[in-house]
Design a protein around this nucleic acid. Structure first.
Lengths: 128, 128
DNA sequence: TCTGCACCTTGACACCATGTCAGGGTCAAG
DNA sequence: CTTGACCCTGACATGGTGTCAAGGTGCAGA
């Protein structure tokens, strides 16, 4: 399978497939005589796994660990669970931070008349 | 005031002060004969404004708009309010996305025994 | 005056994940 | 053989920030 087909089948863009290969997240693809990369169903399966992990907010390094655990039949699921929980906590921290900013902005906007008048507590707040 | 003192007083790192100057977010700093940048209290004030806006999640371009509105005495506060509300909505979207990922991860982790056993729905889910 | 240290300058490279473009080669169908 | 779709590599961009290197400046103390 050429890289374009692998990209469509896995949900990972051609660009990122080449990138993941370059940084060593996935092993170098097989090559045809032409130099074209050639992907097996197993390769696509792995790419799909990566796409899902990215959708869950895992970073490249964590995905590397997950891939290792995934392909290890004797893995201990505790490690996977720990990674997932750490990721969940990190996501929670970020979500709370964003929510805090959002609340602050909405509070400020509520006290801002809008329209043509120059008065605006939003800018005042930024000056503090 | 040298750049180091301005950085400490404003909460913007030296690195970012130079960066903001380079990308035109702030005007080029005055220079001493030595070539050292020289900052006034007004400059520091503006940097502080930028630091606060960054803390609220505004991007560089939006901060440029806010700076223009800030220094415009005849500004209409409606524009500022619109920027703040747009930012709040964007932050809300991101926060909800993160929260969704977090919930998914926690659900998966709850069904993962952990410990030494290899069974793990987290990895199964990533395979789907 | 010399020395040393803290500070400043510019430029470059790094991260993370991704897009896009250019300049070339390959393949398959018409 | 031509055409168009596909592939290759390499480079540059984004955003916001860190860090490092090689060199100049400023000031205080011996």
């Amino acid at each position: 399978m050429n890289i374009g087909a692998a990209a469509r089948a896995s949900g990972v863009s051609e660009r990122m497939i080449r990138h993941y290969e370059q940084i060593g997240l996935i092993p170098p693809a097989a090559r045809r005589d032409s130099g074209y990369r050639d992907y097996s169903d197993a390769d696509v399966h792995r790419l799909h796994f990566i796409a899902n992990a990215r959708d869950l907010g895992f970073g490249i390094e964590e995905i590397g660990s997950l891939l290792a655990l995934w392909s290890d039949r004797n893995r201990a699921s505790g490690e996977v669970k720990a990674l997932a929980l750490a990721r969940a906590e990190e996501l929670g921290r970020k979500a709370r931070a964003l929510e805090g900013m959002r609340t602050t902005l909405l509070d400020l906007a509520r006290n801002c008349a809008g329209g043509e008048r120059p008065d605006c507590p939003i800018l005042d707040r930024l000056e503090e």
